[in-house]
Each structure stands twice: as C-alpha cells, then as structure tokens.
Design a protein around this nucleic acid. Structure first.
Length: 468
RNA sequence: GGUCCCAUCGUCUAGAGGCCUAGGACAUGGCCCUCUCAAGGCUAAAACACGGGUUCGAAUCCCGUUGGGACUACCA
C-alpha cells in the first residue's frame, strides 16, 4: 500500500512550491489508492507558529487536497525522537557534541574563507568523557568511506561520496530534535513508502539514508520534484510577489485553476493543458514528471483561471463572487441580492472576467442605482446625432410588456430598419447610457438584466444630459 | 569554494535514434466573426546552449565546455 506525506514547516503560509509538493503527493496517493498523510514539521519552535499551521490547513482545504491521516505535529512526538536518539547513542551511532554554536560558526567561516568545504571537524567524535558545565547536542556519526546511492524515481541513480557527508546534529543542546532526524523517524514510524518532495532536499537524502540504516529500517523510495522559480530564475520567494496560496484566493483565483496550473509545472500528459480532477488522478505518473525547474508564469495562470471561470456554471460563480462584491463595496452588507438574477448577470460577464475580482467589478453597473459616464464615451455617443434614437427607443421600450432580451431586440431591429441605420449606431449610445462605457456584454441582455425601471431612468438621464 | 541537479520558442512543455521542414499552450502581431468589449476560429513570428564523439542517421545516446539552480545551520 502506497503511503505518502506532505510535511510542511509552519514558518510561513502555504506557498506555491509547497502546494505543488502537496499536490503531487496527493495525486500519487489517489492514483495508487494509497494514503496521503499531513504532517506538520514544527521542530523549529522559534519560527513555527500555530497561526501558520492553521493557514496551511486552510490552504490545503481550499485546494481540496484532503488527507487521510493527521495533521500530526512533530512537537507532540518529542518523546519518540528522544528514545530513538538514545538508542543511537547507546549503539555508538551517535555521540554528544560539546562544541558551542559560536565556535562552530567560526570554523565554518574560516573554512569558507580558505575555500574549503565547511565541514564539522569531528572533534567530539571520540570524546571519552563529558565536558563539564556544557549541555551537549547529539550528533549522528556519518560513515566517512564508501558511496551512497539514491535511486530517485524522477532523476534515476545519483551517487554521493560519504566523505563529503557531515555529522548531523540530530538533537539540539536544548533537547529538541532537528529536521534531518525527525523526518526519518516519522517516515519510518508512519510507514511512508514514497518520499515526494522538492529537489532542494536532494542533498539531504544520502544523509537521511544513513539515518535509516543506523535505525535498521528499510529506505523508502524517493522522488525529487524540480523547483519552481521566479522570473529571475531563482527559487520562488516572497520577493517575487504573491507566493502564498491564500493570496491567490483573495485576488479571485479558483482553486481548480491553481491546481491545474501547478500540475503542469513539471508534469505533462502529451499536449493536454486542461485536466479535470479525475483525469489528473488517472493520468498522474512520475514518468511524466520533468527534471528541470520551471518558471512560474502569472500570465498563463491567469489564462487558466479565466478558462475555469468561463467554464464554471453561473450559479457557482454567483455564489463565489458575493464575498468580492462585498469586499469591493459593490454591494453593501445586508443588501438583498436575488441569486437567480445574479446568476444571469454573472453569465453575461464570466467570459470577460479573468478573476473573481474582475467579475465583481463587471457587475457594478447591473447592481448600482446610477452610472457615471466615461467622458470620452459620453462625448462620442451621447450627442445631438444620437438623441432622436434614444428618445424613440425609450418610448418604444416603455410600451413592451415583456422586458426580455428577445423582445428588446425586436424593438432595436425595428428602429434601425425604419431609419436604415446599423445596429451599432444605436447600440453604442445605449451602451454608454446603461453602463457609462463603450464595452459591455450584448446590449439586449444588458438591458434585460438592468431591468425596465432602471433602463428607463438611465435613458432619461442620457437624454437630459444631451439636451442640457 | 565544495557537493549534487538541470539545459527544446520569452515562459510552460511534447519529443523514448529515422514519424522533426521540431508539435501544443500562454503571451505577442494579423485576419475572420461581430452592436462594443470579450470569448471563439484561423494565421504569423518564435527554440533543440556550444564543441566533440557513437551511428547509415542524433533534439534524442556518451564525453567535455558553458550557463543556470539547489544544498553546504544546534532552519526545514
């Protein structure tokens, strides 16, 4: 049975890179009908916060990446790490290190300055007696000869020389365990079969393999995913702008779009660009995961988002857009909104909205009492030449009983035929009268959605504006 | 510096030695559709980093060079 995990560290919100690692793990688990486990790696107590844990969980839920076990927290498991560390200590596979962080840092700086590998010199490796007055850290005794092979599911065979491997600190002097140790203990303890993570962990892998060996456990399979880069081709980070998943939620992106965008960063299935969840689960495989890192491209993501908006049912979008209508002050708290009407309105705007925020703004002239004219639009279309048509249209529309797009169209057609003009000659002035702008959905449906009463008011206002 | 990874249009990618005159997608330009704006359709421009091999034949395999990235913590 396949068991995989996503193991974020709660030192920040769920970001794009983490979300993709979570997604690939989730996909692999679902494809293989295995288990997906969420584990919070919060051993760094100075940087981890409860707030970030909640934020990560919120992000996972928004993306609809459900987990079968957890969230486990490593801070709840300190006893377990302690006992494993004691076991290694007892067997001589780990040792106490009395060096102070300051002297270690000093040594590292010197090595770097001399162009040497900054590696622990092993001075505490064979200490016979404890150094009094110092609480030691625990170091793992790394083998210094031979090679370690990582058979990566994505990259193939990678060979590391053990001589380059450093003796890891597995327990800090304050008694808390460190990442390279807890990750192994937990993956063993949770029966993880496949470790799927960012390729920034590739260099840690041989060290972790030795920890598995020392503990006497079978090494899981590894799959190291290529990194996601910013436009400057360095690792995606805060300086590249919005990188947290929730920031995209707040700016009006759909989770399906993010998932689809993220999965195509590094994974492909022939020429297909758009995938349903089921297709993703069905098709996902490491064989189609690329090896090279990918630059995050906001334009393509935006395109996918608009694609998903266009293809979402209007009812669903209407529901989703309400928070944005409120936030953008297009609708007031407590203001009544007919859902059926809103869906109709959304339906006319969804193909010209790339985000839910854009969709919310596009709804403004449907919802508001009044419109403001764009100055250029007003000058061009609300003038003496168009006045007679506006008057005639107003009179004719006033008398139709069924204020529907098809009936409205009949009125327009009859007027243009009578005067031998083009539809544009009348549609554009009306458009400006209704929306204040020169662009909008089809004019007949715009009128229908605005409704007879407001349409009359706005035509009246346009006429007055011209006469005045 | 050391270790490891990577290398096809600006970007995401297809490509498993002949199907490649290198395909798709985003973005960009043009055309069509059209009441405007979109959406959609068609179309154009745009890439195998370089150098050596191997082979009848290389984007594809090997080596080197160059370039980029990650790691190098009592962070994860």
């Amino acid at each position: 049975m396949v068991r995989v995990r996503f193991a974020p560290s709660p030192t920040g919100h769920l970001h794009i890179g983490g979300a993709r690692a979570a997604l690939f793990n989730w996909l692999f688990a679902r494809h293989n009908k295995g288990a997906f486990i969420l584990r919070i790696e919060d051993t760094d107590r100075t940087r981890s916060t409860e707030e970030y844990i909640n934020s990560i969980i919120e992000g996972m839920k928004w993306l609809n990446l459900d987990w079968d076990e957890g969230p486990y927290k490593q801070t709840d498991r300190f006893d377990i790490y302690r006992s494993y560390a004691d076991k290694l200590l007892k067997e001589g596979k780990a040792y106490y290190c009395y060096c102070s962080p300051e002297e270690l840092e000093q040594g590292r700086k010197e090595a770097l300055a001399q162009g040497k590998q900054p590696k622990y010199d092993g001075r505490c490796r064979n200490l016979k007696a404890p150094v009094s007055g110092v609480t030691p850290a625990v170091r793992f005794r790394m083998p210094q000869e031979g090679e370690t092979v990582v058979n990566d599911l994505i990259r193939g065979k990678i060979v590391f020389e053990n001589a380059h491997l450093d003796d890891l600190i597995i327990m800090r002097s304050d008694g808390t365990p460190t990442y390279n140790f807890t990750v192994v203990v937990d993956d063993v303890d949770m029966n993880i079969t496949h470790v799927i993570r960012g390729d920034d962990h590739l260099n840690n892998t041989p060290k972790q393999i030795h920890v598995y060996d020392a503990l006497g456990y079978k090494v899981p399979l590894f799959a190291h995913l290529p990194m996601i880069l910013g436009p400057d081709k360095t690792r995606l980070s805060k300086r590249h702008g919005a990188t947290s998943v929730m920031a995209y939620k707040e700016t009006g992106y759909l989770p399906e779009a993010l998932v689809n965008y993220l999965v195509r960063l590094g994974w492909s299935y022939g020429d297909q660009e758009v995938f349903s969840r089921d297709e993703l689960i069905k098709y996902f495989s490491f064989e189609n995961v690329g090896k090279s890192s990918a630059v995050f491209n906001p334009e393509k993501f935006l395109w996918l988002n608009s694609h998903y908006i266009i293809n979402s049912p209007a009812e669903k979008l209407a529901e989703l857009v309400i928070p944005f209508l409120l936030k953008e002050k297009i609708v007031n708290e407590g203001q009544a909104l007919d859902k059926g009407w809103l869906s109709k309105a959304v339906n006319t705007q969804k193909e010209r909205s790339k985000t839910l925020i854009e969709l919310a703004h596009s709804l403004r002239y449907y919802i508001s009492e009044d419109v403001e004219y764009n100055e250029k639009a007003k000058v061009k279309f609300l003038n003496e030449k168009t006045l007679p048509y506006l008057i005639e249209l107003k009179d004719r529309l006033a008398s139709i009983p069924d204020f529907s797009a098809s009936e409205i169209e009949k009125v327009f057609i009859s007027i243009i035929e009578k005067h031998g003009i083009k539809l544009g000659n009348i549609a554009q002035p009306v458009r400006v009268a209704m929306t204040g702008k020169t662009e909008s959905p089809g004019i007949f449906e715009v009128l229908e959605i605005i409704g007879k009463e407001k349409t009359m008011k706005r035509l009246e206002k346009a006429i007055k504006t011209i006469i005045k």
